[in-house]
Design a protein around this nucleic acid. Structure first.
Lengths: 190, 190
DNA sequence: CGACGAAGCCTGACAGTGTCAAGGGAAAAC
DNA sequence: GTTTTCCCTTGACACTGTCAGGCTTCGTCG
């Protein structure tokens, strides 16, 4: 609490702002003002404006990874569906943060090895799942393609939900959970 | 050429900039300066900075729609794969523009009926395709879920390609086209 | 022909932004 | 007790989007 409490204050305020108003309207100066410090104070804890986005993304990947690992504790024949559901539900429950995680211009994943590590870990979880599901005979190409397909469908469903178009076209979805599962079933992936 | 040539000049410059440097670094003033006009001139052709993004998105949806319609001219049993491939290839060939199309904060699709119309048309194309593919017996719920699944996998694959993580994890992909098709096959959708 | 009004563009100004530069004050290390 | 280090401050700069108002140029109508 003592150690760099300003960093936490600003980080939390940033997460809240992103969740409510999205990433782009986030102002470094206003963050500082709201925290009651000078406009330069945040620079002692984050190198850049992008630094705070990197922190937000890192937190997001950590929590998403946890959610996916938790989904793996489902019965074997329901794991795929549980993974899909966990991914999409996380994205919807943390829409702003989720957007930041996949905005390369904001968090610059290419140059942030710690972000890559978490993203890699999440994907490895997925590849392992696919490998055991397809069995020994499966070729590496099939495994990669199927893992990519699963990630794609989860990611696509999440982003299309968040950014609007699907919500409007599909119409009011009484039971979102059921819809997600039925999307998984319609693809051969869950 | 005479009629509002400045609008075209600025629009093209904006598209080029978005393609090269992404949407967020696009400066209204610099656009004007590059066109050799005052910093207020663009306001006579676009209401906002977002106005130019709306124009970019509209152009993008138009061209994406054309690409999808063209893909529908494939043999019936290859249509699904062709749609997937057309969607992803368009996104990769027009990465910046594609990002703008699905950034609700930039083009504000909720309040832009002309954008919704194009997005709806694209989705209707997809629903029709699914309907004829599943046949008469299919329930409306299954049709919607399968259409959503197809859109999700195409959209997810495209965005994961563009924003990096997939490219890195999948490794160098010798034949991207083959990879896209194999992703489609691994799901039951193509 | 002359008045008028709109279209298209300009100059000026304002609040707000990210970030570089330099200083200050307290606490900790030597 | 001096010096170094950490955290924060004030000041400035270039740049942004956008509101306000003025100035030509041109088509239309009385």
């Amino acid at each position: 609490m003592v150690s760099s409490s300003l960093r936490d204050t600003i980080f939390r305020a940033a997460v809240d702002h992103v969740a409510e108003h999205g990433p782009d309207s986030l102002s470094f100066r206003k963050l500082a003002a709201d925290a009651g410090v000078s406009h330069q104070a945040p620079y002692h804890h984050f190198a850049d404006r992008r630094g705070v986005f990197r922190a937000i993304a890192l937190d997001g990947f950590t929590r998403l990874g946890d959610a996916l690992v938790h989904a793996m504790s489902a019965p074997a024949d329901e794991q795929s569906g549980a993974l899909l559901e966990a991914y999409v539900e996380f994205a919807l429950a943390n829409a702003g943060q989720f957007r930041v995680m996949f905005r390369s211009d904001l968090c610059d994943m290419e140059n942030a090895p710690e972000l890559q590590a978490f993203a890699d870990a999440a994907f490895d979880t997925l590849v392992d799942h696919v490998r055991t599901k397809l069995g020994e005979g499966a070729s590496i190409n099939d495994i990669r393609a199927r893992a990519a397909a699963m990630w794609s469908i989860a990611h696509g469903l999440a982003t299309l939900f968040i950014d609007g178009p699907l919500q409007r076209k599909i119409g009011p979805i009484a039971d979102r959970r059921a819809f997600i599962r039925s999307v998984g079933e319609q693809s051969g992936l869950a």
